[in-house]
């Protein structure tokens, strides 16, 4: 077994789940009162890495950029899959837009050593740009396959074979290793053999145990460690700025609603009859 080296990119985002997320009165997100969790789409990138580790062995390294407390995000990710975790953290990295983030992450990956595969999830739940993955691939000069729903590696031929969604089509893609993969929200790992299912269980238990004592496999790197050009990262390396945030005005009144009190059975019956008439008409 050649043993695959994989890097998975993960990110912390506000927890949008009901009961966790907090909105202000004007319906905008109350960031201070909303906890940070692993970006849900990143779980699919981790699932892809785990699938490859089950089938090909090798190591999976997790990379994130963010404040020091993002170690908890890396732990959450490692509970799914991961041998080592790297947090790129430095005040000088703060305020980065997607291009500056891509430069930073690419520098982190180069310092680890170029892997066979980099896997990222489809866009983050907060920024929702979907740009950081493709831009990181570009900075690394890796071939890239986005919207991947299933994945296979041919170690002998040093090839990735992937299925990806393309509008209303599905494509079968071939690309050489090393390669950059962005998983689609519809990604599914496939385990056909009993051996692989058992391996999946064992690796799952191992990674949960590893995550519980993450300190021994955790590294935090700053700008000096990465040797990245300070002009290309953080606020300085970011072409874009957020100039203004404003509430979107609510839509103008377009229809005058007939108001029905749900407690009045007669009124509800009338609405029901109207609905049925409309549906039939």
């Amino acid at each position: 077994m050649h043993s695959m080296n994989t890097v998975v990119l993960v990110k912390g985002v506000p927890d949008f789940r009901e009961g966790k997320v907090s909105f202000k009165e004007d319906n905008t997100l109350n960031r201070g009162a909303t906890p940070t969790v692993l970006n849900p789409n990143d779980r699919l990138a981790l699932a892809a890495a785990l699938e490859l580790k089950v089938k090909h062995g090798g190591s999976v390294r997790l990379v994130s950029m963010g404040p020091p407390n993002y170690k908890t995000i890396l732990r959450e990710a490692m509970e799914v899959c991961g041998d080592e975790a790297y947090l790129l953290s430095d005040r000088m990295m703060g305020g980065a837009d997607t291009l500056a983030t891509a430069e930073t992450i690419a520098a982190g990956i180069r310092k680890i050593g170029l892997p066979d595969l980099v896997i990222a999830g489809f866009k983050s739940a907060d920024g929702e740009t979907g740009q950081t993955g493709p831009q990181t691939a570009w900075v690394l000069d890796f071939p890239i396959i986005t919207h991947v729903v299933s994945l296979e590696v041919d170690e002998k031929a040093r090839l990735v074979r992937a299925r990806r969604t393309a509008g209303d089509d599905i494509e079968e893609i071939e690309a050489p290793l090393p390669c950059f993969i962005v998983t689609d929200p519809g990604f599914t790992a496939v385990f056909r053999s009993a051996t692989n299912r058992l391996r999946l269980l064992r690796l799952g238990e191992e990674t949960v145990a590893r995550a519980s004592k993450i300190d021994s496999v955790f590294k935090m790197w700053g700008v000096a460690d990465l040797g990245v050009d300070p002009k290309k990262i953080g606020l300085k390396g970011s072409p874009t700025i957020v100039n203004k945030v404003e509430p979107i005005p609510v839509a103008a009144k377009e229809r005058t609603a007939q108001v029905v009190d749900a407690k009045d059975a007669g009124q509800l019956d009338e609405v029901a009859r109207r609905i049925v008439q409309l549906v039939r008409g």
Binding site: P134, Q135, W138, A166, S238, T240
Partner: peptide, 23 residues
């Protein structure tokens, strides 16, 4: 802001070293 359009907006601006807003 389609799947392909978002992808190429990102890589093209990485290639041209400029910035973009999405969606």
């Amino acid at each position: 802001a389609t799947n392909n359009g978002r992808d190429i907006s990102a890589t093209a601006m990485a290639a041209l070293e400029s910035g973009l807003a999405s969606d």
